[in-house]
């Protein structure tokens, strides 16, 4: 094992510096270190100006997505080890405007997420005094996978369509729309259909499938999109909105 490893880090500061550059840092190598540990070492000991996001460092908050040697990954869940002997190239996620260094602008996603109405929609809400809506484990399995999305944006970074057609609602937001469409408590499929059936909804997707490959949480957004297309063609959603379906 080497004592140190080199990182080539994408640097960009909008104030006055002009074009982005790659800056090389040498950090100690440790077997148990993730790429994020190396970045933290740079920030604490070498260059306090390096900017990036992180929070949980346990792969669940979704903030630390970056491009490492060309692949979108969660840096808190990616060891240095497979990239030896280096150098390791660290860039921001592709497909997003760069605010600074490794920090991308995610506002577009937040706006799209809101557009697909990711909440339970019902004609009538029953009062909590009447208890829970019953939902069997099998009914939960119908949407469970799509509910695992941590909004890490790796799938958008990997998606060739999103890069060309920025209006595309995109993998995670569609998976989350499906998460609610397939929830036995929800009756909002028709409302969401208005957004998903637009050209920039599911139909932009040419089923490249990169999104599902990079997804760290096995959400399978490509599957969600594909399933929606099939269901939409079969007019499945008309049946979903017939009254009296949910308990």
């Amino acid at each position: 094992m080497p004592d140190t490893v080199k990182l080539e880090v994408f640097r960009y500061r909008p104030e006055g510096e002009g074009a982005p550059v790659y800056e090389t840092f040498e950090v100690p190598y440790r077997d148990e270190w993730m790429v994020l540990d190396a970045l933290n070492h740079i920030k604490d000991h070498q260059d306090g100006t390096l900017s990036y996001r992180w929070a949980c460092r346990m792969g669940v908050c979704g903030s630390c997505g970056m491009t490492v040697n060309g692949e979108p990954v969660l840096t808190c869940a990616t060891y240095l080890e497979p990239f030896l002997p280096g150098p390791i190239r660290v860039e921001p996620l592709h497909g997003f405007p760069v605010i600074r260094d490794l920090v991308g602008d995610l506002e577009d996603f937040v706006e799209k997420l809101q557009r697909v109405k990711p909440w339970i929609i019902r004609e009538e809400e029953k009062p909590t005094s009447e208890g829970e809506y019953l939902q069997t484990p099998e009914e939960m399995d119908a949407y469970k996978r799509y509910s695992m999305c941590i909004n890490c944006m790796l799938c958008y970074a990997a998606c060739p369509i999103y890069e060309l057609e920025p209006g595309f609602i995109g993998p995670a937001a569609i998976a989350l729309a499906q998460r609610y469409n397939l929830d036995s408590r929800d009756e909002g499929a028709r409302e969401r259909h208005e957004v998903l059936a637009e050209h920039e909804g599911v139909w932009s997707c040419t089923f490249v499938g990169e999104c599902s490959i990079v997804c760290p949480k096995d959400v399978d957004p490509a599957g969600a999109i594909q399933r929606y297309k099939v269901d939409a063609t079969l007019d499945f959603f008309r049946s979903l909105v017939t009254p009296g379906r949910s308990p």
Partner: peptide, 22 residues
């Protein structure tokens, strides 16, 4: 209990027993 049920009504995927209860 009421707060937790409210969260269920908002869609939280609480794990269930086979009969569909929390």
């Amino acid at each position: 209990p009421e707060e937790m049920l409210r969260l269920e009504h908002w869609g939280c995927p609480w794990s269930r027993n086979p009969d569909g209860r929390i």
